[in-house]
Structure formats: C-alpha cells, structure tokens
Nucleic acid binder design. Structure first.
Lengths: 248, 248
DNA sequence: CCCCAGATGCGTACAGTGTTCGCAACGAAG
DNA sequence: CTTCGTTGCGAACACTGTACGCATCTGGGG
C-alpha cells in the first residue's frame, strides 16, 4: 500500500525550520501579544489570533505559557520595564541643598507611569482585575526604585508615601486610559468624540445645577493638553501633602 | 389526526403567569445580576446563568437589555446609588466657624466610595475598562453632589479638586478590591493568604535591599485594619494638599 | 552512523460564551 | 372573535480557552 488516504508526507511539504520567522519562544510570544494588545485592544487578543500572527497553531503557545492569564501577567511585567524611576542621586546633583529635589524625581516617575499606562491602555483593565499581586522581576525593581527614592527623600514611612502617590497616579491613569479606549473605539478624534457626546451629557446633567454649568460649553483647548495639566495639578497636590510629612 | 408528533399542547402544561417569581423586567435583571456579581465575581456572570436564576431562558433577557455591556453599565449605575456624599450643609452646623468642616464631608464621601467598591469588587474591573464615560442618573447625581460639596468648600476650581481626590480614591479602592478578589479566589482568609504568599514575595525581593526589609516579617496587625489606616493616611495627605489651594 | 528519548508543534474536541433569528404564546384593543 | 404588538424561548452561529494524543524534529549516547 504505497498510497494511503492520509495526506502524502512529501519531502517538499517538510516545513523548513522557519528561516526568517522568529522561533516560537516565551519571549517572542509575549512580545507579539503586547503588539496585538496595543494595536487592537484587550478584547481582540485571543490565543488563536496570537498563534496565527506567529505562524503557529493556537495550542502550540501552551508549550511556553501555562495559561492566558499567565501570559497577561508576563505582558504586564514586560511593559513595567518601561516605567523609569530616577535614581536617588538628586542629593549629589546639588550638594549644598540639604533639601534635595525629590519632588522632581517623584514627578518624573509619575509622568513615566502615566505615559506607559497611556501607551498600553489594556494595562488598566488588567490592573483592575489583578491588582499588584504580580511578582515579576520588572515590577519588583520598580517597587525597589520607588522605595529607594522615597527613603532617600527622608520619609520616615516611605511605603505610606509610595502608596499614596501611586494610588493617585493609578487612579488618574486608569481613568484616562479607559476614556482613551472608549474614544479609540469610536474611530473619531478625541475632540470630535467629545463634541458628539456633549448633547447626551448636557441632557443627563439636566436638573443638576453645578453639572449644567460644567457642561455649558465644549472645552476650548486641546483635550490631550487638558488631561496633562489636570494630571500635573493633582500630582502637585499630592506632593504638597506629602512634603508636610517630611521631618523639619 | 388527533395525535401529532409534536409535544401535546396540553392545558396543564400551560405556564401559569409565574405566581411568586418576579416578572422579567429590566430592574429585576439588573438586581439579580448584581447579586450574582457580588456572590461569584465578574467572570462567573453569563447571560445563560443569569437567565436560569430568573427562571428564564438566556435569550429572553435581550428583550429588556440590549447587550451585556449595557447590563454592566446599568449595574454600575445601580450600585453608584450606594455612595453617600454629604450635603454641603456643614456651614450651618456650626455657624460661627467661618472655615466649615468640608474635610469631614469629603472624608465621609471618600470612605463611602471605598466601602461601595469593596462591597462590589467587580466594580473595579468595569472601571478599568469603561472609565467614567457612563451617564447614568445615579452617577450624575453623585457628580453633582461632589461639585456642590467642593464648591461650597470654597475651591475656586472645584472640578480640579474633585478629580484629584477621586483619582486617589479610585486608585486605592480598585487596587484594594483587586487584591481582595485574589484573596477570595484562594478560599483562604486574608492573613492565611498573606502567610502563604510571603515566601514567594521574599524570594522575588531578593537582591532588592529596601524590599527585603519591607518583606522581612509578616505584618502583625489585622490586614483589614492595615488597609483602612493606609487609606486614611493617603486621604489626609490629599486633603492637606488641597487645603493649601483654598483662598486665605 | 544509528537510534532513541525528550521537546516541540498542532489537529481535534469539549464545554462554554454573547448574540441573532424565527416561531409560539400571550394580553389588550378594536 | 380577530388582530396586533409584546414577551419568552429553542436552535444556531461564530467564537473563546484549553486538554489530549499523535506527529515530527533535535540532540546526544551507543
């Protein structure tokens, strides 16, 4: 029986070792997953589509990743590496200032966090579901650098200060990211989306005096700029409150 | 042909108008959905299970609710009614104090928000995905009351103050809710879960000096109490920072 | 060189999901 | 009694995450 009913195993059908395509590996999978999440959002990521993008079957991924949740955890830790937290060297920059510029460092860390959260809006969804229970290496060194920063700043209870500023930053960033996701789904520019939303908002605000005032007219400035100054304002508030807790 | 192959349509098989069971209505659906979300978490809610709980078929729900996302939006607005924001009557309570106790009112609102978020942990997941784009009546009056409070407190830009404190409260509450969800999934008590997590945390912290200090020994006090004082601390910080922005 | 063991890819299958569609039963209106 | 709009629902579709078992490939002894 030379001819079988099964597909003929021909030498030519032999799959070459994927000459250019990157081999299937945990790192490649995570990298491609992040690319997909960034491009199409969190609900567009499925194991089958991800496999297809890697020229692989869906179930092949499970050789390198235990479960989809674990894959998301890996993705979170991967993008956590993008957050830059300045080293606590600010004292050396200006040796005569005995109250060094920890505020600039904290501000830089906060801005970097926000930037990464807006660059990867799916992060907000994952944070809302899984929180900070992840122990990936990048998240750990993120925490470590924050601890170093606020300790060097002189806070008697650095973890309290960290939790406070981090809560503010997370709250503002996730809210912003969720909003931007909604905007992106509409396919419009942010300003156009706001303009289209205004009537509904004004109607919903009917009977509420302060809200009707707030929604009286569309904002004049660039929405992105508005969001940035809003973030900066709240951050200054939090840092002001914290600086009251510094000894002296 | 008295007998057909189809099931015999007997008078006795006629379904009574569901004597005790509540009729299928949008309100009943939302109420039951919230009960399910609270009891079993967000990923346990499916239209089929929800229908079964209401003695109804899965697809019947779509007569009263356009889509599952809309159902979630309704659920969010429903629980938003639980958040109590004090009326700005604090001035009248003590007529001689010209700087009335807006802090107590804001603190009460913040605590109420947190309590609601912890009572319905699924709220965090939804907030991370949809943000504040919802315009339900309860959310609107929540915003209105906040605006009234901070306006009466004398803030020149009340919306800025609101955004700041709300961001902090949302950030801390969602983080906490996500943590509690993880704990609940483990089936253990919070303290037991922490104890079981400690080794992994310590190992992950290896090489990070500040973190190894922080994870040196398990916390002594009741975890729930720790979380509460942490929340209170950060809130004080934010309110301190805000009070610097008050005129005078 | 051969052979075999372990690692890797993947086709099939299962139990579920949200949602659409067309049909049946109903209460009220004419 | 007939008609009509509303409500419920069974079947079906296009997906999802993942377990299982078989094929193939790779590298290291004999």
């Amino acid at each position: 029986m030379a001819a079988k009913t099964n597909p003929i195993p021909s030498v030519w059908a032999r799959q070459q070792p994927a000459p250019d395509q990157p081999a299937l590996s945990r790192a490649a999978i995570v990298r491609e997953a992040i690319a997909m999440l960034d491009a199409e959002g969190i609900e567009a990521l499925s194991m089958r589509k991800l496999g297809a993008r890697l020229n692989a079957g869906a179930t092949s991924l499970y050789r390198h990743v235990a479960t989809k949740d674990e894959l998301m955890e890996l993705a979170v830790d991967e993008v956590a590496a993008e957050i830059v937290v300045p080293s606590p060297d600010f004292a050396r920059a200006d040796p005569e200032a005995d109250s060094p510029d920890w505020r600039a460092a904290a501000t830089e860390a906060a801005r970097s966090f926000r930037a990464t959260a807006l660059r990867h809006p799916w992060l907000s969804s994952v944070l809302g579901q899984a929180g900070l229970a992840y122990l990936g290496p990048n998240l750990m060194s993120f925490s470590e650098r924050l601890a170093a920063l606020f300790t060097a700043a002189g806070f008697p209870e650095p973890s309290r200060a960290i939790d406070t500023v981090l809560s503010y930053v997370i709250g503002m960033s996730t809210t912003e990211a969720a909003w931007l996701t909604t905007v992106a789904r509409s396919g419009e520019t942010e300003a156009a989306f706001i303009a289209r939303l205004m009537p509904a908002a004004q109607q919903a605000a009917a009977g509420h005096d302060h809200l009707t005032d707030a929604y009286a007219e569309p904002p004049a400035a660039d929405p992105a700029e508005i969001r940035e100054t809003k973030f900066a304002y709240g951050l200054e508030v939090v840092l002001d409150g914290l600086s009251l807790r510094l000894p002296r």
